[in-house]
Each structure stands twice: as C-alpha cells, then as structure tokens.
Design a protein around this nucleic acid. Sequence first.
DNA 1: CTCCAGCTATGTCGTAGATTAATGCGGATA
DNA 2: TATCCGCATTAATCTACGACATAGCTGGAG
Lengths: 242, 242
Amino acid sequence: MSIKCVNCPIRKSPIFQAMDSETLEYMQRFKVGELVVEPGTPLMSEGSNAPQLYTALSGMGLRYKLLEDGRRQVISFVFPGDFLGLQSGVMREMTHSVEATTNMRLCVFDRSELFNMFRHMPGRGFDLTWLAATQERFLGEAMTSIGQKSATERIAWAMSRVFRHLQAMGEGKGKSVPMPYRQQDLADALGLSLVHTNKTLARMREKQLMSWSDGLLTVSDIEALEELGLVEDDGVASRPLM
Amino acid sequence: MSIKCVNCPIRKSPIFQAMDSETLEYMQRFKVGELVVEPGTPLMSEGSNAPQLYTALSGMGLRYKLLEDGRRQVISFVFPGDFLGLQSGVMREMTHSVEATTNMRLCVFDRSELFNMFRHMPGRGFDLTWLAATQERFLGEAMTSIGQKSATERIAWAMSRVFRHLQAMGEGKGKSVPMPYRQQDLADALGLSLVHTNKTLARMREKQLMSWSDGLLTVSDIEALEELGLVEDDGVASRPLM
DNA sequence: CTCCAGCTATGTCGTAGATTAATGCGGATA
DNA sequence: TATCCGCATTAATCTACGACATAGCTGGAG
C-alpha cells in the first residue's frame, strides 16, 4: 500500500473522529487496493450499484445530480477523507453521481464485504448511521442556503464551510486552502448562474471578503465571512456520540 | 393503547416496508405511550436533544430550519408513518425543528432505550441507516428541485411526490389526498415567495394540472404532473435491501 | 353583530439574477 | 508559428420572481 493507513486523511476528518476508532481498524481489513484517477473520471453514477466503495485519499471531486435536459445540481464537494458510495451499500442504487475533478487517489473497498461487516457488527453499524446522518445534516443546511439566501450569502456560506473544513483537515497553509473547482461547479452547487456567480465573486473580492483564483481560496477574516453567510455554529458534527 | 400496533400507519409506509419486519416488532417493546397535540405545537427544536422520539400515527406536520432573521426553510412535510427524531439519537442534537400543523397523534418512544437497542442489535441497527439514507436521498432530490427548477416545476414536483406518497399510504380517496398546509408552507418548502406560489398555483389550476384548496389536493393526471415536475422514477425507495 | 386575525387572491412595480454574447488568455497540440 | 479549447471576465438585455399594496373570505372572540 502506498499510503499507510495510520496516515489516512480519513483520520483527520471530523466525521470520522466522531466514530468509534475501532471501526477504522476494522475497515482496514477490507481494503482491496488503491485507485488513481484523472480529472473528469466518473467514479459512480446515479442509479448504478457500484461494487466498489472508496475513501478519498487525495485530490478532489464532486457529487451531483443531473436533470434530463442537462441542468446539474452539485450536491457537495468531495475532499480527502470523504467516504464514497454509502448509498450504493444501503439503498440498492446511488442517488447521485460522483466524479473526480482533479487527480485523485482512492482507497478501494469491496462493497458487499464491507457492508456485510457493518451489517453484522453492532457497534460498527452504528457508525454507518452516523455517516448518513452527517450527510443528512449537511444537505439540510445546503437546502436552506439555496432556498432562502441571496447569492452573496450563499457564496459566503459555501466558501466559509469549505475553508473551515480544509483548515481542519490540515490541507491549507496560513489563510489559504486549495479549492480546485471551476466557477461553474460552485454555481451549480448554489443554484446560481455562472455569470452571476462570477460577478458576485468579483464584488466580494473587491470588498476583500475573500479571494479565489488558480484553485486557491484565501480568506483573511473567516468569522466575518461566516457571519455574512449566516453560517450556524456547528456544535454537532465534530462531537462524539452519546 | 388506543391504536393496535398491527394497524400502525408505519406499516403502510414504503420506507418501513423496506426494513426488516422484525425491527418493527422490536420497536413495539419500547413504546412508552401516545401523545396528542394541536396545530402549532412544537415537537422538537433545532439544537435540542429531545429525550422522546416519535412515530406519527395520524395528522401532519413540518420539519424546518430557521435563519436568525426569520426566513424559514421547510425541509419536508411530516405524514403518518414518519419517524421523528432520528438525528437527536444519532447526532447529539436535532438539526431541524419539527412542528405539528394539524391535530396529531404520535407514538412515543424513549430515545436512549430505543437507540440502545438499535446500537446493539446488528440487524436492527442497519435499518436505522436505511432510514437516514432514505432521508438523504429525499433531500438530494429536493435540493436539486430548489436549485435548478422553475417555480412551476418545483410545485409540480412537490405536489406529485405528496400525492404519490399519500396514495400509497392509503390516505386518499380516488384522485384526492389530504394536504392540510398553508400556501406559505409550500412556498417555504420550495424556496419561493408566498405571492408567487399563489399565482403559480392559480395558473396550474386553470390549466387543470391539479387543484389544491381546503386542505385537499386533487390530481387528475398524476403522470402528466410528474413529467412537468421532472420527477425521477423512484426505483429505489420502496425496494427491499440487498 | 362587529371586530379582528389569518389566509387566499390579484394587480403593479422593482430587482436579483438569468440569458446571451463578445473578449481575453493560458495551455495544449501540431 | 498558428489554431483550438476550456475557462474567466465583462457588458447589454431580458425575465422570473420578489416586494408591496389592497381586497375578500372565513371563523373565532367578545
């Protein structure tokens, strides 16, 4: 294995820190290999039941849903330490597609093996529920942003969430974190048009709220940005279970 | 008990039909009583960790999130057969609030007792994950509707989902199902203004696409409505586990 | 019976954001 | 070198939707 499990980025993720650490030990046993993919590679697609599950080791991607006519809703960004394919294990099919947007390295698991373990071991299985509930929590927050907030608020919300997460994951240096997406991706994540996203970004850059170019997101005053984005304080996601 | 568990509406729900039926038997043991509430009664609130969990026996309600300034995002409608409080069992706190909008009768469970069971029994615990994943699936769909669809499409989407679900639950008669909400509730669910929702509803009513008044939703051609709402065919939600 | 509160309904107007289109620019290809 | 391609940028125009205002309906409180 090219990465020692001890250094797996998953261990830095707030999501997994809240899980029983034994679960990670168990998961290791079901690792069947690693996978390296290029930007644009589809990892899973909506409606399919992929036999492989992944954790993201490095690089980034997108989860999204498509409408027949091509409109796209980006559900969330995929960062190192994320778990991919929960739904193809629990439901029969993926409810969204996943695609790499940079070079990615992934840790590969066999779906049925891994889920068999989760299904039959009480303590482990509960961590799966935690994962799903965490996703659910995020989606509710995103839905509220898209449904109720202005363009500026939405962008501030998204940027500060990304910034905080990647900082916590140790991905950034100083006041910058990597954010290797196109403006179109952000637009599709927030339910805005590309042009309007661009203009709003420009305005926010002028006002020194943040800057994002060349895949690098720089935020000087994260708290101001969070306030602008009406970000709720996150008392839950990183806290251990009951 | 005023309702026999055998007749619990939960048994009609597609969500629970996909669960291991043994789980329902187990849940019965943890029922601690029933609760009747009036419209407007808050059942759980965002950030709290309610000690009681519920299943809805009759009546309807709302899940929602509030922004500080009062804007409200309705996350989903609550119908008979729904399970309330999953998050306060899995995460430490509810990530949204729940409120009754009609008279409701609820089946009450003790949170820690019930979750203890789920945590320690492998097969049962997996059904919890199924529940959370189902919610996640729905939220992704809602997010896509709010983020990408027009007002008419959103309303068609919401109405056809409600209609199909309540039909399947046996709540309707003929081409009508109960939908006892205010237009404001629908507006907040879809990220639209009340006024625009009202006008769009009027236009759709004129075009005979559907009618909704006095808490009764009537749809003559559900398939046409679904097509208008770009509803994806639901191959997943009602299917049994692997 | 009136009063009031909550809801639906509709018209007018304003605007945030969508659409279209044109320009520029670095990177790849050859 | 030239050509192409994907993406960011910017400006001009349009429109779906929001904001505001008014009126009508219904049911409950006094």
